[in-house]
Design a protein around this nucleic acid. Sequence first.
DNA 1: TATTGTTATACTCTATAACTATA
DNA 2: TATAGTTATAGAGTATAACAATA
Lengths: 156, 156
Amino acid sequence: MAADPRTPDALTVEVAELIGTVVARYHEEYELAAAEHALTGAQARVLALLAREPTPMRQLARQLKCEPSNMTGMVDRLEARGLVERRPDPADRRVKVAAATDEGEAVAARLRRELKFAGAPLQGLTPAERRLLRDLLRRMLSEPEEGGEEPRPPRP
Amino acid sequence: MAADPRTPDALTVEVAELIGTVVARYHEEYELAAAEHALTGAQARVLALLAREPTPMRQLARQLKCEPSNMTGMVDRLEARGLVERRPDPADRRVKVAAATDEGEAVAARLRRELKFAGAPLQGLTPAERRLLRDLLRRMLSEPEEGGEEPRPPRP
DNA sequence: TATTGTTATACTCTATAACTATA
DNA sequence: TATAGTTATAGAGTATAACAATA
């Protein structure tokens, strides 16, 4: 590799590529687990959210970072399969609260268990290594990327 | 949280969730970088592959884990924008080799640089931590998941 | 006969804009 | 008027099946 002159250091590039591989693997596993229940990845994500907590359509769209109009069709399809239902909100008759049915909860629970990604690859690490990985990922994710464009000089 | 009785230990769950967050963040960044060039994520992935190496349609489909029939449309759209072209294979007149044009190469190079995910979050780690992260990810990914279902007892 | 790429078809996901029923 | 959900529409990605050209 090593194609671009403005590329960051080799170590950073390698870690970035490894993360890319992890991302690809993760998606593969997720889609596969979903497909075993005849669900698409997007449907599985909706179901997972609703299994945690019944949620108004609009809020659901915000959480999934998509337009509210899309939720109509997605919830329609899940509702047609009996995994989700729409409930009225007594406080505001405009809102419809999407909620997982009992069957939906069961499928979501099975999905969580079948997400072997949490199992297989991580089992290759010792508990101490897993703790280490957790701490590194936490730090990586908590950086509030305040800078924006500036590469920001490394702290001493 | 902590809903399912058959869930693995809390540490594994937490790491898995962190990885889920990393995956979500990564995708967000990727789609955003692609959108800045009026490309979809899938188009950006195709272009990235072709910028590395001209590739026959069918092989491209294998690498992207999708059906060969899809590649027709995807390459069509990229070709319509002048980022990609189809070349004949002198050795086998059935195959068409998709290749990035000069402009395609340029866009791919810019895309690589703009993938801030490689920059921002990783800059929060020291080089030593990055090395550690690299080694952990490598080990995670190299485990050939031979076992399948068996949790496999931890090595001493 | 088998393989490569394509076409035809259908479904899902996505975004935009317009509509409805509430508030 | 503003908001929640929906409908209508369009484009992109995906899979399946059938097809033409070539091997």
